[in-house]
Write a protein that binds this DNA or RNA. Structure first.
Lengths: 232, 232
DNA sequence: GTCTATATAATGATAGAC
DNA sequence: GTCTATCATTATATAGAC
């Protein structure tokens, strides 16, 4: 299991350097020269291999998608050992995560593909766990799958904020150790002590079909206001 | 309530154009000339007002943070009417959201400030709701607040994916109508049918202190693997 | 495949007129 | 405050030697 930059082909080395820099600094800010320097080749060679800067970007997109979706299948087969390998190889993935974050918040079709693949995986998982009786039957499987996927990606997309909030890298062992139980607790017992919010929202939604749905009032998530994305 | 571009000062018009373009295309990709064209002024004027392109960026950062945090207080005072106003004025906010998304996934200190403000708001809300008996006592308030903030921001940061998955804009009335109940359901009843996952994770975590924590196995969220950010 | 030039265009920034 | 014109720099991309 290669750890980082070793006996990679020159082309792969350039691609890896590009992923890292695009992910860290953005596409527009990153210059071909900087990529060439990072990969220790001449600027000309970068363009020789990928045609243009945009061609390089597309290659990076394809590579990152492939890498994530590929690993996803791997995870499905053997999650535990895959996680172990992941932790051992975490340095290799950080650049990919940063790149992924930029992909997802911008609007490329490659990001769409990737998201769809992850969403499909989540849906399949939901079906299985519900069938096995591990999970209960939710209100709406599709929407639940969508938001679970979002929630799962959020810590990756905002990795910096998680690391700041946790006081340590979430992807470290200690980070996982500290956040696992609280999150499982949330997904096991929920947030509210009883049904009253749900009932109230259901009522409000069936009652008013017009503008200003009152529901936003006590819902910690999802709602329309960017000022306080989870609640007031 | 001004809807979009009207009797704004020239400086404000330039700033709005910059927010929109930076948010849509990224900082490096967006040129001063493009901003000038969008604001219908000369390139020189842009730099006259903001000193440099980076100065313009900083002004945009400050503006967006201020706008979100300011609105947040507004929400706290009167969530319902604030939401109504938000919905009426949704076009004005879309560019801000796109800008926010880029801020949060890149690593500026302005983004840190903003996130911290939102996190503080979430924490305060948690305390209140728990004290009021609306929410139950969680495993760890701080970590819960952190992840609730992340979950709340996720649909904004990945707005495009939510819109694709929902088949309509999440910020539209119909989008809210469709996603409110499923999400409230998740936060009310949780995901799992019983405690077994939580118990298993707790056991695994206290048992093994070494590498490879088995817990990742059945936790739909937060875990280390980018391949399947929520579960296998 | 890889490098060293170099062409060509576009960018951020400045100066000075109005 | 706003514009036009221009500078100096830097970028992507190409051509050709090795």
């Amino acid at each position: 299991m290669r750890s980082a930059s070793e006996d990679l082909s020159t082309r792969a080395r350039i691609r890896d350097a590009a992923v890292a820099l695009f992910g860290r600094d953005g596409f527009g800010t990153t210059t071909v020269r900087a990529i060439a320097a990072a990969a220790d080749v001449s600027p000309g060679l970068v363009l020789h291999h990928f045609g243009s800067k945009d061609g390089l970007r597309q290659a990076c997109d394809r590579y990152v998608v492939e890498e994530f979706v590929g690993r996803k299948d791997e995870m499905t087969r053997d999650a535990t050992s895959a996680i172990a390998r992941w932790l051992a190889d975490v340095d290799r993935f950080h650049p990919l995560i940063d790149y992924l974050a930029r992909m997802l918040s911008s609007g490329t079709t490659a990001a769409d593909e990737l998201f769809d693949a992850l969403l499909t995986g989540t849906s399949r998982m939901l079906d299985e766990q519900i069938a096995a009786g591990i999970m209960r039957e939710p209100e709406d499987r599709d929407i639940l799958a969508l938001y679970l996927t979002l929630h799962g990606l959020a810590p990756l997309v905002m990795r910096r904020q998680v690391t700041r909030g946790l006081g340590l890298d979430q992807l470290s062992e200690e980070g996982i150790r500290r956040s696992t139980i609280p999150i499982l607790d949330l997904y096991t017992h929920g947030l509210y002590s009883d049904d009253r919010m749900l009932v109230a929202a259901r009522e409000a939604l069936t009652r008013t079909s017009g503008p200003r749905s009152d529901k936003g009032e006590n819902d910690p998530n999802q709602d329309p206001d960017p000022p306080r994305p989870r609640r007031s």
